[in-house]
Each structure stands twice: as C-alpha cells, then as structure tokens.
Amino acid sequence: MRNLIALASGSLFGLGLLISGMVDTTRVQGWLDFLGDWDPTLAFVLGGAIIPMAIAWRVAASRGAPLSGGSFPSKPDQRITSDLAIGSLIFGAGWGLAGLCPGPAFASLSFGGWEGLVFAGAMIAGMVLAVPAKRLRLSAV
C-alpha cells in the first residue's frame, strides 16, 4: 500500500512537472528574470500546486491518521534558523544559474541528455556534502 501510493505520488509529481514547464530551464529562468523579459508562468504552477495541498492539510487535520497508518507530520519548530536562510539563498543561486531544482532535475533525467546527468550528479554530491557541513555548524555553536 505505502509503496503503491509512493509510486503514484511520484508519477503525478513527474507528470505535473513535465506539463507545467518546470523542466524547461528557460521558463524557470524567465520567471526569475524579474528585471528582464519576465515570464509569470511559474506563479500559475505554484498557485495550482498549493490548492490541492491546502485542501489536503485541512483533510489531514480532521482525520486521525493517513490511509496506510502511522501519523501525520507535526508542524516543525517555526524558528527561522540560519541554516534555513543560508541554505535557501545558496539553493536559489544555483536554481537561477541552471534553471533546475531537485524535482525537475529528476523528472527530466530520461530526456535531459548528459547535461541533465551531470547536473543531477553534482546535485547529489552537494546533498551529501551538506551532512558534514550541518554537523560542523552544530558543533561550532
């Protein structure tokens, strides 16, 4: 059950990323190009994605547990940490530079050519490097 739901969710995510244009780096960079020839498409993507998810959070609040058991994730500590701020700035810089974020990087792997593979490989390396970096920061404070 859990595995089937995960496969279906991932498939919907991938299809949505393909249809919406999130896998097209020129569209993403056009959306971030506020001072140039701005492309508002991604506002529709984010807005569209938030609607079903906002309903899902409401349903989750009125239900006891997820379909396959367990519990719903509790709202994490809402403090804006330096990791959150610095990490988001670093992530955004890379997102603008190449025009891909983690979901679309994977959704486009089957047709993204060697460039997509190099980007995804570097992205995974960056993810692994973040583990010791977080540990160092924790031990420094």
């Binding site: 739901i5 969710s9 995510f13 919406s20 244009g21 492309d39 991604l42 079903p52 998810m53 994730p73």
Partner: peptide, 26 residues
C-alpha cells in the same frame, strides 16, 4: 503556457496531497 502551468501545478499538488493523506509524508 499559463493554462499548462496551472494544470501541471494542480497535478503536482495532487501528488503531494496523495503522499500526505496516503503515507503521512511531506
């Protein structure tokens, strides 16, 4: 592109909703 963006976005959000309500995951 706005229409495709909105439809694609709704599908992305449906995937996220299914993952939350089905498996309790973000």
């Amino acid at each position: 592109s706005f229409i495709y963006g909105l439809i694609g976005g709704l599908i992305i959000g449906s995937g996220a909703a299914l993952y939350l309500l089905g498996n309790g995951r973000i």
